[in-house]
Computed example of a mutant assay.
Amino acid sequence: MLPFFRKKKNGNPKMEGNESAVSSEELLNETSEADNTEEEVHTDLSFHPEWTMSKEDQYSFQFLNMECPALRPNQISLSGISLQENEPGTCQITAFIRNSLNKTITLHETTLVFLDAKDNVLGRKTVDLSSAGEIPAKSSRPWNFTFNDEELFTSDLPEEGWKLAFQLKPSSRKHSLQLDNSWEQSLAEKDKSKLKEMVENLDPPKPGEVNFMGLKALQKDDGALHVTLLIRNGSNKNITLEQIPLQVEDSHSQVVAKGGFSLDQFEVKANTSKPWTFIFPTELVQKEHIDLSSWKAYPLQKK
């Protein structure tokens, strides 16, 4: 059954639910290279070959797809379109399955959760999404999901603000190395292999922990201090860092450099470690001659 589209005051259809996106690597163990420095992905509408509908419904889906926010590369999302109560205790949810990868994907059996605006769980079900067919690269496919009374935990269904989300299993993958594109392109293969081996041989961070490990510190001839750190994400979610206040101590436990660094959408994926070099210009270096036979660098806690 195709959805009934609620209308805005201007007569256009409206989205009733919200967006819920996950990493394609976490969900499918699939990634693809972004186009150049692509930061946003807009998805084209794609219908299942066996779906038939009126021109009016096609227009409604097209309009709502254009209303969806842009995705980031390597994401799979569910974007809530409509919710209908078929009969007491059951409902049909229509949502876009959205694929921001540069390649076709096929989903399989997965667990979905139905959430309200405050992320309270209203329902849960396991569904085989292979029936949705192949989802083309950078596309949105509308699909219907039916929850019965055993899969719903409430009879009080929200009209708006809800969302359908993938329930990811706790990661069983080994903690692994993640390299920024600039590092992938500039680092020699032997150096990549050494980093990968080191990360895999280290004890991983505790679940949910994010920490910093020093790799290399070097003072240049102009006095600037270059510090390379391994940012280690032990959680099952990707994290994005925007501001990092760092302090460096030398072998005598004396502060030799301190400063804040602004990062542009710096993402460390779930259960990975990502190296990055922070450059302290001479004005942030507090000693002229630094003993770096041993050292440590760490983020300053906000007061």
Rank of each mutant, 00 (worst) to 15 (best):
43 T>L: 05
294 S>Y: 10
26 E>H: 00
85 E>A: 08
82 S>N: 10
261 F>H: 01
132 A>G: 00
234 G>P: 02
89 G>F: 01
269 K>N: 03
32 S>H: 03
234 G>Q: 05
19 E>H: 14
110 T>W: 04
78 L>E: 03
287 K>L: 14
124 R>Q: 15
223 G>W: 14
50 E>G: 00
302 K>L: 14
68 C>K: 11
100 S>T: 04
210 V>N: 06
129 L>S: 10
239 I>P: 06
227 V>C: 13
18 N>G: 12
299 P>A: 03
278 F>N: 04
135 I>L: 15
261 F>W: 05
159 E>W: 00
19 E>L: 13
147 F>P: 12
265 Q>K: 01
246 L>W: 02
246 L>T: 07
200 E>D: 02
117 A>H: 14
72 R>T: 12
173 R>L: 12
49 P>S: 03
26 E>Y: 01
5 F>H: 08
19 E>N: 15
32 S>A: 12
36 N>K: 06
20 S>L: 00
249 E>R: 13
196 K>H: 04
141 R>C: 11
177 L>I: 07
172 S>V: 03
82 S>A: 15
43 T>W: 05
3 P>E: 03
232 R>L: 07
72 R>Q: 08
132 A>H: 06
176 S>P: 00
147 F>G: 00
240 T>Q: 11
77 S>G: 07
221 D>E: 10
19 E>P: 01
278 F>C: 01
197 E>V: 06
138 K>T: 13
21 A>Y: 08
31 T>H: 01
63 F>V: 11
209 E>G: 02
95 A>K: 02
40 E>A: 15
253 S>A: 12
167 Q>H: 03
15 M>L: 15
298 Y>Q: 10
264 D>M: 08
199 V>M: 10
238 N>Y: 03
299 P>C: 00
184 E>P: 01
90 T>I: 00
244 I>Q: 13
38 E>G: 07
168 L>K: 12
15 M>R: 13
225 L>R: 08
149 D>N: 13
104 T>R: 08
219 Q>S: 05
276 W>K: 09
224 A>E: 09
262 S>T: 14
177 L>A: 04
166 F>G: 11
185 Q>N: 05
59 Y>Q: 02
162 W>E: 09
291 D>L: 10
296 K>D: 12
85 E>Y: 00
275 P>F: 09
182 S>R: 08
92 Q>M: 08
204 P>Y: 08
292 L>W: 09
226 H>F: 11
192 K>Y: 04
4 F>A: 11
60 S>Y: 08
160 E>K: 01
171 S>N: 04
42 H>C: 02
301 Q>F: 03
80 G>Y: 05
119 D>G: 11
148 N>G: 13
152 L>C: 13
198 M>E: 04
80 G>F: 10
285 V>I: 06
73 P>E: 02
205 P>K: 07
268 V>Q: 01
187 L>V: 11
294 S>E: 09
273 S>C: 07
232 R>N: 05
246 L>H: 03
112 L>R: 05
45 L>N: 08
206 K>Q: 15
223 G>M: 11
95 A>H: 06
229 L>D: 01
65 N>Q: 14
25 E>S: 05
